[in-house]
């Protein structure tokens, strides 16, 4: 695979500064993401961690251009990511910058198309005109994610959850993006399949140098795949540190609570619920703890 990553000239792969997103509801305004800033070096892997409603998925969708931020800037390889893209060239350039693997492997693939036809459409869109070249590339992509010709000729409903997620990863890789955003990409899979997909992602990262942003509520998964973790609470960054440090010596009460919430022998959910009620709001807790 020939992922288009910038040489190590010091320019971050992605640089996010002051990102903010609010939603209007019937009862007022909900702040989904507030003053979010981080950067990721070429080939780096960042875990975005938090519970439901913490703003992880909104952040991912803003990186993909699926949501427009109210404020802030996203730079990919030193170039600002346009909030609105017009024209084929701009759309394809944006697609080459960031791709996504969605949470639900059952709904993220078009059920009418075989996996081969899905990949064929992506490659055709991105300029691979020769059918023989497309066919060869589809073979490479499927081999890269551990699938074969049988899966290529099969529609999504004929595949297991793990196979579908592999197909979704192949679809994202077909664009040869610099950055891959994975939104809870293994949470819908059973534990053994989770491990297979995580190993696959680690292999892809090692082989291609692609950058990863891994959105998850599961700290164990983030520890396996990422160099750094950024903890979001109610849309604000509460901690952003190397993942090992964050797991061994969490600085923020919310991070400690997340770690304490992982079920284990002697685990007391009542105690966790009590701690949660006593937790201060992110701003009162001191706000951003930058990793630098």
């Amino acid at each position: 695979m020939t992922t288009d990553v910038t040489p190590h000239d010091g320019t971050p792969l992605i640089e996010v500064s002051g990102l903010r997103k609010t939603y209007r509801t019937g009862t007022g305004e909900v702040v989904a993401v507030e003053d979010l800033s981080f950067s990721l070096p070429v080939g780096g892997a960042l875990g975005l961690v938090g519970e439901s409603g913490s703003g992880k998925t909104t952040t991912a969708r803003m990186l993909l251009g699926l949501e427009r931020p109210d404020a802030g800037r996203i730079m990919v390889r030193g170039t600002p990511l346009a909030e609105t893209v017009r024209g084929r060239a701009a759309r394809l350039a944006r697609a080459k910058a960031v791709q996504m693997v969605f949470q639900d492997p059952y709904l993220s693939l078009d059920g009418r198309l075989s996996i081969g036809a899905t990949l064929d459409g992506v490659l055709r869109l991105h300029g691979v005109r020769d059918p023989a070249a497309r066919s060869a590339r589809i073979g490479e992509l499927l081999a890269q994610v551990g699938l074969g010709p049988r899966e290529a000729a099969t529609r999504p409903r004929g595949l297991s959850g793990g196979q579908r997620q592999r197909a979704a990863i192949a679809r994202a890789l077909a664009v040869e993006p610099a950055l891959l955003v994975l939104d809870e990409a293994v949470s819908a899979l059973d534990v053994s399949v989770q491990a297979q997909v995580l190993n696959l992602l680690a292999d892809i990262r090692r082989d291609t140098g692609i950058g990863l942003i891994f959105v998850s509520h599961d700290l164990a998964v983030v520890r396996y795949l990422c160099d750094e973790a950024l903890v979001l609470h109610r849309g604000r960054t509460v901690e952003h540190r190397p993942v090992g440090d964050l797991l061994t010596a969490p600085a923020d009460p919310y991070t400690r609570l997340l770690l304490a919430s992982i079920p284990r022998p002697g685990w007391d959910p009542e105690h966790i619920a009590r701690q949660r009620r006593e937790l201060p709001a992110p701003a009162a807790a001191g706000g951003v703890v930058p990793s630098e």
Partner: peptide
Amino acid sequence: MSAVTLDSAAAPPR
């Protein structure tokens, strides 16, 4: 990983 040969993947089956 080695690439697999693929003849019928690109086009939907007839």
